[in-house]
Computed example of a mutant assay.
Amino acid sequence: MNISVLVLNAPYDSQSSYSAYRYTKAALQNGHKLSRVFFYQNGIHSGTKLATPPQDEFDLYKAWQDLGTKHNLDLVICIAAAARRG
């Protein structure tokens, strides 16, 4: 199955961003092909390199980057949404 994932929420605003990460990881582990992960609206905050999550919490920023590198994923941040949010 060929899958695309849309992430709409910032990493620590709700459970949905973490759920999208776990879904993506599980799909890859089960042999599915991932076309792309698209970060839109507040989901664009998943791509910042400036965030420093608390040391005792799961680092979702690094997790997305590591997953993308490991599986050569197309992780795309909407430029218009990013520009609107600085």
Rank of each mutant, 00 (worst) to 15 (best):
M1E: 14
M1R: 10
N2P: 15
N2I: 15
N2K: 13
I3C: 13
S4G: 15
V5L: 13
L6I: 09
L6N: 12
V7N: 08
L8S: 11
N9A: 14
P11R: 06
Y12A: 03
S14F: 10
Q15I: 13
S17E: 08
S17D: 02
S17R: 04
Y18S: 09
Y18F: 10
S19A: 09
S19W: 09
A20P: 11
A20G: 04
A20Y: 06
Y21M: 02
Y21Q: 04
R22I: 07
T24I: 09
K25S: 10
K25Y: 14
A26W: 03
A27F: 02
L28Q: 08
N30F: 14
N30D: 11
N30L: 10
G31K: 12
K33D: 11
L34V: 02
L34Q: 00
S35E: 09
S35I: 12
V37Q: 11
F38A: 12
F38K: 07
F39R: 06
Q41S: 12
Q41I: 05
I44W: 00
I44T: 10
I44E: 00
G47L: 04
G47P: 00
G47T: 07
K49H: 12
L50T: 07
L50G: 01
L50H: 00
A51F: 05
P53K: 02
P53Y: 04
Q55S: 09
Q55A: 04
Q55M: 05
D56R: 07
D56K: 10
E57K: 03
F58N: 02
D59F: 08
D59V: 01
L60D: 08
Y61K: 04
Y61T: 01
Y61I: 03
A63P: 00
W64Q: 08
D66G: 03
L67A: 07
L67N: 00
G68L: 02
G68C: 07
G68T: 03
K70F: 10
K70Q: 13
K70T: 05
H71G: 01
L73N: 00
L73Q: 03
D74A: 11
D74V: 06
L75F: 04
L75P: 01
V76P: 06
V76A: 11
I77Q: 05
I77A: 06
C78S: 04
A80C: 10
A80Q: 15
A81S: 11
A81H: 06
A81E: 07
A82Y: 12
A83K: 09
R84N: 13
R85S: 04
R85Y: 02
R85F: 14
G86P: 11
G86N: 13
